[in-house]
Computed example of a mutant assay.
Amino acid sequence: MILAEKILKHRKENGWSQEDLAYKLNVSRQSISKWESGTSIPDIERIILMSEVFGVSTDYLLKDEVGIVAKDEEYTLTSRDENLRRVTLEEANAFMEFNEKHAKAIAMGIVLCILSPALLILLNHLSEEKIIDIGVNIAQTIGLVALFLMITTAVTIFIRFSMKMKQYEYFEDEDFELEYGIAGIAEAKKEKFRPYHEKATITSVALYILCALPLIISGALGLSSTVQILCVVLLLIMVAMGTFMLVSAIGINSGYDKILEEGDYTEEKKFENRKNEALSELYWIIATLIYLAWSFYTSNWGFTWIVWPIAGVLYVVIIKIAAILRGGNEI
């Protein structure tokens, strides 16, 4: 049994969380996590203290373990704990509260972008078919005004909340340690949020799959063009609903991951994200331009939304390729 397994075994036998053990050893929770995963090894002073805490001998802990390092040579966060930014309970609570508002606001901004052409599509058709007593030019003008107002509102939301989120960027970009008790609070909140996160993900995927069904059925049955246009509007509404649920749920959950340095916000992932930041910004700007250009050129807003799921899949592929190329260059 290697040291990592022994630390994990004795911690669980004592009924301690990683945070509890970190408090007893005067290190960060992240250090305990790394020791237990075997990605790093504690210094000899921590080994001695650990033997006292667990009530075992240092020989037992060190047996079968190779590479115990001196205090001044330790690779992990332990030797750097005193240099890490220390997050207080007040800071953590303020971040979690704001992150929930931020996630919902960003989701609403995306919803406004998705729904922005709906009125234009509907009024343009109704005026062309003489269903409403408004000229085509007036109908298009009203629709375009609504579209630009919604896009402007969405952009305002993105800018406003992005600027406010800057004060918490260190959760995403820097290494830090939490005051005692914060990790437990964040883990409890994340666990409580988990059922909604799962429900939102399943529901949004179902909406994405089913959104085109009314349009397909209306076309197959040869229903009037007005019915088909209404189906296009319904499609946009369903996509918007699914997007709001998915984006807000992912955003809120990622806030807990940032505090706990889990998922996409581990120390290693933060390093990778910093490398990918410029590429990500350029990629999504290009995706947005393609969507708007294609949509305005074809006026087929009921179909061009497909850009976003495709862009999402391609983004993952591009990031993986970038990581492989960087790895090759480093070699």
Rank of each mutant, 00 (worst) to 15 (best):
Y283S: 02
L221N: 05
K270M: 03
S248L: 01
T201F: 05
N300S: 12
A206M: 14
K190M: 13
G219H: 14
L215F: 11
Y256T: 03
N273T: 04
A287F: 04
G302N: 02
A240L: 09
G242M: 00
G242R: 00
H197L: 08
T266D: 00
W294G: 08
G263M: 11
L236N: 07
L230Q: 04
S254T: 13
N273K: 09
L236A: 10
I237D: 01
T203I: 14
S225K: 13
F303I: 09
I290N: 07
A240T: 05
A249L: 01
G263R: 01
S225T: 11
Y196H: 02
E277S: 12
L223T: 13
R194C: 00
Y256A: 00
R274V: 04
S280G: 14
L207I: 12
F271H: 10
N253R: 14
K270L: 02
N300E: 09
L235V: 04
T201M: 12
S204C: 04
P195T: 01
T298C: 10
L282S: 12
R274E: 08
I286V: 15
I237L: 11
M241N: 07
S218Q: 06
L236V: 10
V239T: 06
E198H: 08
R194Q: 06
L235E: 07
A200Q: 04
L279H: 12
A200K: 03
S299E: 14
L234G: 15
L210R: 11
E191R: 10
L235M: 12
I237M: 10
S225Q: 12
T288S: 15
D257I: 01
H197S: 14
K190F: 00
N253Q: 14
N273G: 07
E191F: 04
L213M: 15
E198A: 08
L236F: 08
L213E: 07
S299M: 15
E268W: 01
W294C: 13
N253Y: 11
F303E: 11
L292V: 15
D257Q: 10
I286N: 13
Y291P: 01
N276P: 03
L210T: 11
I285R: 13
T266F: 06
G219P: 01
K275A: 09
Y196I: 00
G263D: 07
L235H: 09
G263L: 00
V232D: 08
E267Y: 05
K258D: 07
F193Y: 06
L282W: 10
K192H: 03
L282P: 00
E191Q: 08
A188I: 07
L230D: 01
W294K: 07
A212V: 14
L221R: 08
K275H: 05
A287Q: 04
K190T: 00
E198V: 08
T304Y: 06
D264A: 13
L246C: 02
G302C: 09
T304F: 01
L221Y: 04
V247T: 13
V233K: 03
N273Q: 12
A287D: 02
C211D: 07
L282R: 15
Y291F: 14
L292E: 13
I202S: 06
T243V: 09
E261P: 05
L215Q: 12
K199H: 02
S204K: 01
T304L: 10
V205Q: 13
P195D: 02
A212T: 09
L234N: 06
A188V: 02
E281F: 12
I217P: 04
I217V: 08
I237N: 08
A220W: 05
E272Q: 10
Y297D: 13
T298F: 05
G255P: 03
A249N: 03
F271S: 15
K190I: 03
G222S: 04
I252T: 15
